[in-house]
Design a protein around this nucleic acid. Structure first.
Length: 425
RNA sequence: GGAGAGAUGGCUGAGUGGCCGAAAGCAACGGUUUGCUAAACCGUCGUACUGGUAAUAACCGGUACCGAGGGUUCGAAUCCCUCUCUCUCCGCCA
């Protein structure tokens, strides 16, 4: 949520920022409502002050034994007037809130302007694209031959897009989760969290998923609950409506399943594990002092890429352009893995600085060293998402005989296993 | 799921219709004292919105907030209703 004061005092800057995001939001409607809101507050407060004064007087008069019937009648009328004004104010505030909640964050000045993914900028590449002296297979062919998953039976129980890992596939998932959690918790100083997977509407609104993304999420009928699309939601909301007393920065890592309806993306890059309705992810979340959030973003990217480097996977870092950033982000890097069978780059992480956008929605504040209460900056990034990581591991490690060599860093988590081999016939 | 108790400022905890934005203690912060530490003493010490002087710093004023929402009343932390959460006991249960 943008600061209403910023919208009021520098509407042109807001308009310019929103324009680079192709956001059709009408700022003048907000300004007009704000004008009316403040007028209603001024008038209402004036009447309330008057009533408080008179009420006090009535108390004194009664104590003195005087008749207050007439003055009470008048004050009652004033009360009705106040109720009417309050009702009107509530309407205005709600209308304004709805408008402001739908406004995306302003891009940071370092964000390149652009229309879509084509305008994103490659910041750097790490590793070399693997070459093979045979025709590389894709992860579906490899995984099925190795008996790692069973998409058909999973589809029978849940519909398309729900993966099922099996045997060494399931163990590989578990090993990767463990490996990443250990790396971030012990080496990078993140505190591990295991949060709820179902959260309320207020929680979803705090991080910005609602109201905009309602159609992309699963909802539990009968209860005011939604399935989380990312651990960002419960972890960032850890401090919702709080003034944080612990010293900043606070850093958390969480492994959770993620549920996404992926409405409207049917048929688009959906083969195998590329785009699924349920997947596991290790997520990093930070609460930091406002002045440090851009440094913290760079460190976050370093922490996430450390996973990829430890696994020896070729990746690149993209800086997203203004038109391709998510709703709440002020600046965002995507991390993509090279997948030879897919013959393309796969996004496995998105690292964003939200500045105070989420903190303002969710009411997350701290006391700065000057003793002033202010909103913190929040950041998060995947560290990293599982299924596409598995895709890259399989496709990069594949051998001519259909086996897959596993990265050394992972072997301790697999009981020393060095490669995945097809099961004996 | 049943019965009961409770929810007040960072914490503990008073407050049962006007003198309460809220006692007291603790913690925190500033200061005095001190060779240093401790102690003692003095002071400060919630949040949001809003009006004014003014530079979005500071100051003065107003309003609202005592779990959330509604009601009674001239006036509600205090009375009534609904909801949420916490605790205790019973039942059920991975």
């Amino acid at each position: 949520m943008l600061d209403i004061k910023l919208i009021r005092e520098d509407p042109d800057r807001v308009r310019a920022g929103l324009k680079t995001r192709h956001s059709p939001v009408d700022v003048s409607a907000v300004l007009e409502l704000d004008e009316r809101r403040r007028a209603a507050i001024t008038e209402g407060d004036r009447l309330k002050a008057l009533r408080n004064e008179i009420s006090k007087k009535i108390g004194a008069l009664k104590k003195a034994g005087e008749d207050t019937t007439e003055i009470q009648r008048q004050t009652r009328e004033m009360g009705e007037q106040i109720s009417a004004l309050d009702a009107q104010l509530r309407e205005i505030e709600e209308a304004q809130r709805q408008l402001v909640l739908a406004i995306p964050n302003l891009p940071h000045e370092s964000v390149p302007s652009g229309d879509d993914a084509l305008d994103n900028v490659v910041v750097r590449e790490w590793g070399r694209k693997q070459t093979f002296d045979f025709e590389p297979k894709d992860h579906v062919a490899l995984g099925e031959a190795l008996g790692l998953f069973d998409f058909e039976r999973a589809a029978r129980m849940s519909g398309a897009g729900f993966p099922l890992f099996k045997g060494p596939g399931a163990r590989l998932e578990r090993a990767l989760i463990q490996f990443m959690l250990d790396l971030h918790a012990t080496r990078h100083g993140y505190v591990e969290i295991s949060p709820p997977f179902l959260v309320t509407t207020a929680t979803m609104t705090g991080t910005g998923q609602l109201p905009k993304m309602a159609d992309d999420m699963y909802r539990v009928p009968g209860d005011d609950l939604w399935l989380i699309p990312t651990a960002e939601v419960p972890v960032t909301n850890l401090y919702r409506e709080e003034i944080i007393r612990e010293p900043l920065p606070l850093k958390f890592v969480a492994h959770t399943p993620c549920f996404r309806r992926e409405a409207g993306s049917a048929g688009k890059e959906t083969r195998g594990l590329i785009r699924v309705h349920q997947f596991d992810k290790v997520e990093l979340v930070k609460f930091v002092p406002p002045g440090t959030s851009y440094d913290e973003l760079e460190k976050l990217v370093a922490d996430a890429t450390a996973v990829l480097e430890a696994l020896g996977l070729t990746y690149r870092v993209l800086q997203l352009c203004s038109g391709d950033m998510s709703f709440a982000a002020a600046k965002c890097y995507d991390l993509e893995l090279w997948a030879p069978g897919f013959n393309g780059w796969l996004e496995v992480s998105s690292c964003s600085n939200f500045e105070a956008f989420q903190a303002r929605r969710a009411g997350i504040r701290w006391k700065n060293p000057e003793g002033k209460t202010e909103f913190v900056h929040t950041l998060n990034g995947s560290g990293v998402a599982l299924p596409r990581l598995v895709v890259a591991l399989l496709e990069n490690g594949q051998q001519p005989d259909g086996s897959v060599v596993l990265p050394e860093a992972l072997r301790p988590y697999l009981g020393g296993l060095e490669r995945l081999e097809p099961p004996p016939k």
